[in-house]
C-alpha cells in the first residue's frame, strides 16, 4: 500500500531477509555439488546419471501430485530437487535406474505430500525413501570399489561391476577398513554414491554454516557424540584414534549429520533441542553400528530421532516470562 509520499506502509515484519525457501534450497544444492563431483570422480558419470534421474523423478512427482489434487504448485521452491539429490546420495552407484524413481514416489507422495507437503512431513523424505528401498536389499547392497569402472563415461554398465566389501562392513566386524585414514577422508573408499568424500561434505557444510542456512549445532553435537563414544569404546583390537577416525569418515555420518539431520522440518527449533537431537542421533548411530545387524545406522538413527522432534521441542520450549515454570507435557506449547 503506497501513500502520497511514495513510502510503503505495511504490517510487520519490517526486517526482510532474502532467504526464501527457494534461496535456501539453492544453497543446499550448491553445498551438495562438491560431494557429487567427488562421487563422479570416484564412481564415474553413472553417479551423476543416478542423481539426475532421482531429482527429475522427485520434481515430477511433486508437480504431478499437486496438479492431480488441484493444489497450488510450489515445485519452483526446489525442495524436491534437494530431496532427489539426498536420496540418490544414499544409494549405491550400481542401482538400476528404476529404483530411484520408486524411491522418489515414496519420498514425495507418501512421506511428504500425503502429510501436507513442504514443512508438514514428520520424517526426512530422502531417508524414509532409503529405508523403503531396502525392499530390494540385494540391489541396495551392491557396493563397488572406487575407480572400478571400465570407463568413466559408462553410465549403463554399472550394475555389472564387481561388488566389494565396504568400510562399514569391516568396522561392523570389529576390523579396520582396507584403506588409509586419508583415503577415507578424501573418499577413495566404497560406499553410497554421495557419502564417500568426508572432505567434500565438510566443505559443503562449511558453506551452509557460512551462509547461515544451517546452524552448526546439530552436526557438531552429532559428530562429536560419535567421536567421543568411538574413542572411549573402540571395538576389536584397533587403536582408539584410528578407530574413531574411520568411524567418522566412513559411512553416511557426514552426509547425515550435515545435510539430513539439519532438515528444518524434521529437526527441533530450539537451541537446546537441536543439541539433544544431535546427541540422540549420535548415540543411536553408534549403538546400531556396534550391536545392530546392519553395519550402518545413520539413516535409522535420524529417522528415529525425527519421530521425537515434537517431544524435544515441547520439552525445551523456553519459558514465557511470568509463565508457569514447570514443564507440563499435557499442556503443550505455552
Amino acid at each position: 500500500m503506497e501513500n502520497k509520499l511514495g513510502t510503503v506502509v505495511s504490517p510487520s515484519p519490517h526486517l526482510r531477509s532474502p532467504a526464501g525457501t527457494r534461496n535456501i534450497m539453492l544453497d543446499v544444492i550448491i553445498a551438495l555439488v562438491p560431494a557429487l563431483a567427488a562421487s563422479v570422480y570416484i564412481f564415474g558419470f553413472r553417479a551423476l546419471a543416478v542423481t539426475l534421474v532421482s531429482c527429475a523423478a522427485c520434481v515430477f512427482f511433486e508437480w504431478g501430485y499437486r496438479a492431480l489434487m488441484k493444489k497450488p504448485q510450489n515445485v519452483g521452491d526446489l525442495s524436491a530437487v534437494v530431496t532427489g539429490m539426498l536420496m540418490a546420495f544414499c544409494l549405491p552407484v550400481t542401482v538400476p535406474y528404476w529404483l530411484p524413481v520408486i524411491g522418489a514416489f515414496f519420498a514425495i507422495v507418501i512421506v511428504k505430500q500425503l502429510f501436507g507437503g513442504i514443512g508438514k512431513n514428520f520424517l526426512n523424505p530422502a531417508l524414509a525413501a532409503r529405508a523403503f528401498l531396502f525392499s530390494w536389499p540385494v540391489l541396495m547392497t551392491k557396493w563397488v570399489a572406487p575407480f572400478s569402472y571400465s570407463s568413466i563415461m559408462n553410465i549403463f554398465g554399472g550394475a555389472d561391476a564387481i561388488t566389494s566389501a565396504t568400510p562399514m562392513g569391516a568396522l561392523h566386524a570389529g576390523l579396520l577398513p582396507n584403506a588409509t585414514v586419508a583415503q577415507a577422508f578424501l573418499g577413495e573408499i566404497g560406499g553410497s554414491l554421495g557419502e564417500v568424500s568426508a572432505l567434500m561434505l565438510l566443505l559443503g557444510g562449511a558453506y551452509l554454516v557460512f551462509h547461515k542456512v544451517i546452524s552448526p549445532r546439530i552436526p557438531l553435537a552429532y559428530i562429536l557424540t560419535v567421536a567421543v563414544i568411538t574413542y572411549i569404546f573402540p571395538k576389536g583390537e584397533a587403536d582408539r584414534l584410528s578407530w574413531m577416525l574411520y568411524n567418522l569418515f566412513c559411512g553416511g555420518l557426514m552426509l547425515g549429520a550435515i545435510f539430513m539431520a539439519t532438515d528444518y522440518t524434521t529437526s527441533p527449533i530450539t537451541k537446546l533441542g537441536q543439541i539433544i537431537f544431535g546427541i540422540g542421533c549420535g548415540l543411536i548411530t553408534v549403538l546400531i553400528r556396534y550391536f545392530g545387524t546392519y553395519p550402518e545406522g545413520v539413516s535409522y538413527a535420524i529417522l528415529v530421532m525425527n519421530t521425537t522432534v515434537w517431544l524435544i521441542d515441547r520439552a525445551t520450549l523456553p519459558r514465557r516470562f511470568g509463565g508457569k515454570p514447570k514443564f507440563d507435557l499435557k499442556g503443550g506449547a505455552r
Binding site: 520408486i102 523403503f132 531396502f134 525392499s135 530390494w136 536389499p137 540385494v138 540391489l139
Partner: peptide, 8 residues
C-alpha cells in the same frame, strides 16, 4: 523374482 517390494 527380485523386483517385488519386500517391505509390503
Amino acid at each position: 523374482e527380485g523386483y517385488p517390494a519386500l517391505f509390503l
